[in-house]
């Protein structure tokens, strides 16, 4: 916490993320209506005191749907990045620790994955597997681990021949112990920074997929699919398009600010290490 207050970027990002977390957890208590309740008497009402963000084409309360939508973006972001971080860290650790031909096989695979347009890959897999929130999280995770792999490998390569690692090795530490007790903890900060930034892009990808109709399926609400509905009514119901986009923007901004802020904060230390 003390570090965060030193950096206004990181602090504002942190506040945004904590607010989104709060909204997502307490959505059932915060939302004035049932997000899926269809009320044909109040279709496309503009924002007012009883409906803060108006109602949609089926008379559902947009504010409540937005609150529930925050759960989706949070869940997708965290699970997808969790998967990517685990895969990326594992492969990067193996490549950086064992080097040699294992390293070159893994890194060639990374190069191949990096050269396939990611969004195409995600679209193809999702469409063939039938869209659902779980498939989306898994597919985003499986297609975004390459950056972490490169990062962890580079960290490991630079740490591998440090004296404390060589000392631990000489004292008979197993490979597993060397990796998990000595190398990984010392590579943690860049992994955290990349993960936070990765959540931002996962949230954007999910909203894009939902917008295309291949993401979270109705009646479950996500910011992306509220926006898709809004597209149909953009001429007479601006609130349906404005609010979900703003919510995505603010959330993504929050993760980016936090990530870049953390990077700035941890940067001087990194530079000293390199020297």
């Amino acid at each position: 916490m003390k570090i965060l207050t030193q950096n206004p970027l990181a602090l504002s990002g942190f506040i945004i993320i904590v607010s989104v977390l709060f909204i997502a957890i307490f959505a059932p208590w915060l939302s004035p209506y049932d997000p899926n309740y269809i009320d044909i008497h109040s279709i496309l009402l503009p924002p007012s005191a009883s409906h803060f963000m108006g109602t949609d084409g089926l008379g559902r309360d947009v504010f409540s749907r937005m609150l529930y939508g925050s759960r989706i973006s949070l869940l997708v972001g965290i699970v997808a990045v969790g998967i990517a971080t685990v895969i990326g860290t594992f492969l990067g650790a193996v490549a950086g620790f064992y080097r040699g031909y294992i390293d070159s096989i893994i890194m060639r695979f990374v190069d191949i994955m990096l050269s396939i347009p990611t969004f195409f890959l995600i679209l193809a897999v999702i469409a063939f597997l039938t869209p659902s929130i779980w498939n989306i999280m898994i597919v985003i995770g499986l297609t975004s681990w390459m950056g972490v792999t490169r990062l962890v490998r580079a960290e490991f390569l630079s740490l591998r021949n440090r004296e404390y690692i060589l000392a631990a090795e000489a004292m008979g530490a197993s490979d597993y112990r060397l990796i998990s007790k000595h190398l990984l903890p010392n590579s943690l900060t860049p992994i955290i920074v990349t993960s936070v930034l990765g959540i931002a892009s996962a949230v954007l990808t999910e909203s894009g997929l939902s917008f295309l109709g291949l993401g979270v399926q109705a009646p479950q609400s996500s910011w992306g699919n509220i926006l898709t509905d809004g597209k149909e009514y953009i001429q007479f119901a601006w609130w349906l398009s404005l609010f979900p986009g703003l919510a995505i923007l603010i959330t993504v901004l929050g993760y980016n600010l936090l990530g870049e802020g953390l990077r700035d904060l941890l940067d001087p230390k990194n530079k000293n290490q390199q020297k």
């Binding site: 926006l227 398009s241 986009g245 995505i248 923007l249 603010i250 980016n256």
Partner: peptide, 15 residues
């Protein structure tokens, strides 16, 4: 720059 990073392109396109 930070806002440009965070803006969902499709939303901006729609607006």
């Amino acid at each position: 720059v930070f806002i440009g990073f965070a803006v969902p392109g499709f939303w901006l396109a729609l607006l």
